[in-house]
Structures are given as structure tokens and as C-alpha cells.
């Protein structure tokens, strides 16, 4: 192997990389917050919601979980405009990530809700709370706490999956790497650098999610 590694392009192209990182972070921030919110609503419907809505949510979850993210993205970006809404690359990428994470987090959160002891619901009812109030004030937070590690892993998986949005020309980190390799012909180095950045982002994201978990969930009281 007589290949000379060359990272000199980093000086010239680092603004592209920084911009790519910023967009990747923006994508996962919106995706995580809106996706988990959607997941909570769907989980409520599947576990406790009205009977007519359950099969609809179930179909959504199964459909998303059994098709590749890339195809969901293409369908939203290329396919949806024929029905009307014209989305920009970034909007389509955001929407695809929210829809994707919504389905996965629905299943995870539902498991948390179903693991709630029955007495909690009964206790809420005996305090004259409506079922929704019981869900909101009694069941939800401990349920989320129970499944927070699994949910965090899923958010990291979705962040790594977001590399694909470069395929619809959303200018994320992978897009920056593609751009740089097309300019400098240093494909291997460009992808090594961006892979390392993704690894750091994944580790940071796991750390941040751990901290968020520590903030929103009260310390587990001694039982």
C-alpha cells in the first residue's frame, strides 16, 4: 500500500464540517424532542387510548419499524409532493426523523406504561382523577424513567441513521464529507474524519441524554 494520507484539506474545509455538525445536531434535537412527544401520544393511545385509534397507531408503528429509514425519507421527500405539500430538504429530513423515532419510541414507552403496577391507576382513580389525569400526573414520569436507557439508545441509533439524509441533499455532516471528497479526491480521509466526528457525537449524545434523565426524573426514593 503506497498511499500517502493527506489531511491538509481540513484547514480549508473545516467550516463545511462545522456547518454539517450543526445541522446534524439540529436534526437530532428536533427529531428527539418531537419524536419522543409523538411516541408518548402514540403509546398512550396504544396502552390506554380509545379503541378505534389503536389499530391506526399499531399500523403506523408496524409500517415504520419494518421499512428502511432511507425509503421513508425518499417517500416523504419525493413521493409526498405529488399529494400537495412541498417540503424543503431539511423539513423532509426533520419530518422523516420525527416519524421514525415516533414509531420506535411508541413501542418503548408503551412497554414502560404497561409495566406500571395496577395499583397506581387505582390510586389515581381513588383520588377522583380522570384516567387522563392519572396518566399525566401518576403514570407517565415513572414510565419514562423505567425505559429511559432504552429510549436513549434509540435516539442515538436515529442520530447515526440521520447520515442518510445527505441523500436528499440535506446538508448534514455526511453531506459535508461527500462535498469535500468530491473537491479534494481525498475520499478515505474525509470519511474517516466524519466517522470519528459521528463517534464523538454519539458518545456526547449518550452523555447528554443521561444528564437530561437525571434532571427530569426525581431520584428513586427508597422503597
Amino acid at each position: 500500500m503506497n498511499y500517502q494520507f493527506e489531511f491538509g484539506w481540513l484547514c480549508e474545509y473545516y467550516p463545511q464540517i462545522v456547518k454539517g455538525i450543526a445541522i446534524t445536531i439540529q436534526l437530532i434535537a428536533v427529531g428527539a424532542v418531537a419524536g419522543i412527544a409523538l411516541g408518548i401520544v402514540c403509546a398512550w393511545v396504544r396502552a390506554l387510548g380509545p379503541a378505534w385509534a389503536k389499530p391506526i397507531v399499531a399500523a403506523y408503528v408496524e409500517l415504520i419499524r419494518n421499512t428502511p429509514f432511507l425509503i421513508q425519507l425518499f417517500f416523504i421527500f419525493f413521493g409526498l409532493p405529488s399529494l400537495g405539500p412541498q417540503l424543503s430538504e431539511l423539513q423532509a429530513a426533520n419530518l422523516a426523523m420525527v416519524v421514525n423515532l415516533g414509531a420506535y419510541s411508541c413501542e418503548i414507552i408503551r412497554a414502560g406504561i404497561q409495566a406500571t403496577p395496577k395499583g397506581q391507576f387505582e390510586a389515581g382513580a381513588s383520588l377522583a382523577m380522570t384516567p387522563f389525569e392519572t396518566f399525566r400526573h401518576v403514570v407517565l414520569v415513572p414510565s419514562l424513567q423505567r425505559i429511559w436507557p432504552a429510549l436513549s439508545s434509540q435516539v442515538v441509533i436515529v442520530m447515526l441513521g440521520s447520515a442518510v439524509v445527505s441523500q436528499i441533499a440535506a446538508e448534514d455532516l455526511t453531506f459535508a464529507a461527500n462535498f469535500i471528497q468530491s473537491r479534494t479526491f481525498r475520499a478515505f480521509e474525509a470519511y474517516i474524519v466524519s466517522t470519528a466526528v459521528y463517534l464523538v457525537l454519539a458518545i456526547l449524545l449518550r452523555y447528554v441524554l443521561g444528564m437530561v434523565g437525571g434532571l427530569i426524573f426525581p431520584r428513586r426514593a427508597a422503597r
Binding site: M1, Y3, V156, L160, G161, S162, A163, V164, T174, A177, Q181, A187, F188, Y191, I192, S194, T195, Y198, L199, A202, I203
Partner: peptide
């Protein structure tokens, strides 16, 4: 390493990295 990086990047590196060996 493999769980913390995107599969897409692994594909790119395999594609361009193997090429380095001629």
C-alpha cells in the same frame, strides 16, 4: 466502534478504504 458510527460511513470507508490497497 461499529455501534457508535453510522452504517453509511462504514460502507463508504469499506468502499474507498479497500481501494487504497490497489
Amino acid at each position: 466502534l461499529f455501534q457508535g458510527t453510522p452504517l453509511l460511513m462504514q460502507l463508504f470507508i469499506a468502499f474507498f478504504g479497500l481501494g487504497l490497497f490497489g
